[in-house]
Write a protein that binds this DNA or RNA. Structure first.
Lengths: 195, 195, 195, 195
DNA sequence: GATGAATGAGCGTTCATTCAT
DNA sequence: AATGAATGAACGCTCATTCAT
């Protein structure tokens, strides 16, 4: 019921909305969206299910609100990149920023990575997909060899891999992130030079 | 004289089990595991839900049976590779065979890719993860630079990316698969030479 | 110099109670009592649900308040008729006035007609029923033939029918009302003469 | 473990569907459709709510199934009447048959009468309304005086009134029904002769 | 004169699963 | 080899209502 103001601090007393988002994200990332019930979220917050409905109209609304926070930086990145010349340096900057955005919104990106099927069926699914395609388009070396096209996509996937997979192996996530960024940058550089 | 002929009333034989698996895989890949109900599967097959329970003890059993078919080739690949010297050529062969195995079991790989959270929580989850780590181990350049380690993981992810993502963009899947394989091979080659 | 002007912030004054009643009646008549939620009423008024509770103790209280306005004329009619001799002319006057009362409170009468079950279970249900029986008693030709008794009840129903049903068919409601009144009057006249 | 050791017969056999319909109709007529919950119906039958869903797809489906049984005779009546000349005798026969149909399906007709708003919003609502209009059309004296049109509608309403209202007053329902039929017949006769 | 935040009860519905036949 | 009938648990959601502010 409270209007989701675009920005500005919500009445701090009513931090319940925020708490719902936090716990929900945690549980969604841990167990998946459909396996997480509203009862579970409510219990964790020590409120009733009905209280959730005061703050969000549906279960899907909760996850959508999480996506909104996280995709704004990507939208800005895309807007910025669209206005730049499609040089190698621009592409590198895109990867750099994307990597940072991912690090900042890690839990939700993890959720997206591990629940692609769910994400796709959600109402934001289309948007997410479109954005990803747009990013690929920004990196892609048009009319290049097929292998080079793959390299551009792979660069993006490498960033994801760096965050998701390697975090289980190595110690410092930040170091790993930079290594992944390096590899990704190598990939697009190679694709760029082939053209 | 006993009737040796097998011309009795056409018994559709034990193909129902197979049909369940086919439809289930199709639906799981399309909508995810938890969003696919046994009712839906049964309806598609024009049998009752109870019939599914004649062939499989639980819903999870159905998906486990699908995994079994598909992971056998990977187990064999791992067994083979473990017996080889860890040369670059061996690694290339591993990627080659893995790529082929993925192509052969595409729908289930797609399911795994898009439902990682679900897969993880399934009873086969641990096995799948272990196998994947094992594969990474086979490709990895131990004690190399972090970036090279990333490259090895990225090689595997590139194969997935090639299958999942690019199939929406390009025409011929086989051509795309080979391009992805090429890029993946490049990645491990580079990692290997750095060492 | 004190501002004598009345151009301050428009205080809608105590008209909110009235507005609640208006919207509530509209919605109750349109969708029924139980299908109309307080949330809906509040939204239509652009206030919160809690505001409704400032003006009415319960949901039922809202509808009771509506009934009160509308049944007062009927109570007066009954009181008047009880003091008259039970002549044909009195009966005619009862029908005439009842028809007018219905026309004046049309929406609520429509609600009553279409939600008899609900009305019956409401706390005013008994009162409404009693009043109706009382009216019938006023019109009835005691100890007459059964058919004549039916005619008296039917006269009342005809008035309702005229308002509810025919309004969908014909143009001018007032004309229809008078026609229904004519038929109803005929019915009691006939019953009266038979006796 | 619901072995409540109640003395009931172990094999309820295939009569459950029927039992659901019976109890549902009883409760719907008594308390209205929306005030009757599936829990209540199930409890009365000593089964679980889920059992209802084996037999009916939705709550609305239950009531629709009840309507189907009851409106078939009306459809047949309309079909028959449409094929007859629109004489007074035909009209009388329509009323006669309609009155009988109502008596046969009394509980549902009572439900319809007392829950018109609900009925209207149900998926069968439109059908019911259409049928009623069709009946009126069959009885109506086209281009006659407005009062005569009212008489025809009133004839139908009188039948309803006879069943619903008078049953509370008098003893023998069958006798009352015939009296109502007589009055209704009078009404259309009068309308017919005026023309 | 009204809101923000929440509750407790209940609803219709769906699910995986069972078992006698 | 499969069905008919049912269950128990849970789910997402809505409702009328309360109360401190």
């Amino acid at each position: 019921m409270p209007t989701s103001s675009s920005s500005g601090p919500q009445h701090r007393r009513g931090n319940t909305r925020q708490r719902i988002q936090d716990i929900a994200l945690e549980l969604f990332a841990e167990q998946g969206y459909e396996k997480t019930s509203l009862r579970e979220i409510a219990e964790r917050l020590d409120v009733t299910k009905a209280a959730l409905y005061y703050h969000f109209k549906t279960k899907e609304d909760i996850i959508i609100s999480l996506f909104e926070d996280v995709t704004r930086p990507i939208d800005e990145l895309i807007a910025w990149a669209d206005a730049q010349p499609r040089t190698l340096e621009t592409k590198r900057e895109v990867l750099r920023r994307y990597s940072e955005a991912m690090a900042a919104g890690a839990p939700l990106y993890r959720f997206m990575q591990e629940n692609q099927a769910t994400t796709r069926e959600l109402s934001i699914g289309h948007t997410v997909k479109t954005r990803l395609f747009h990013l690929v388009e920004l990196l892609r070396t048009q009319d290049g060899a097929l292998a080079d096209q793959v390299r551009c996509v792979s660069a993006l996937f490498t960033l994801h891999a760096g965050m998701m997979f390697l975090q289980h192996i190595d110690g410092d996530p930040e170091e790993t992130r930079r290594a992944a960024l390096e590899v990704a940058t190598d990939l697009i550089t190679q694709a760029h030079h082939d053209a």
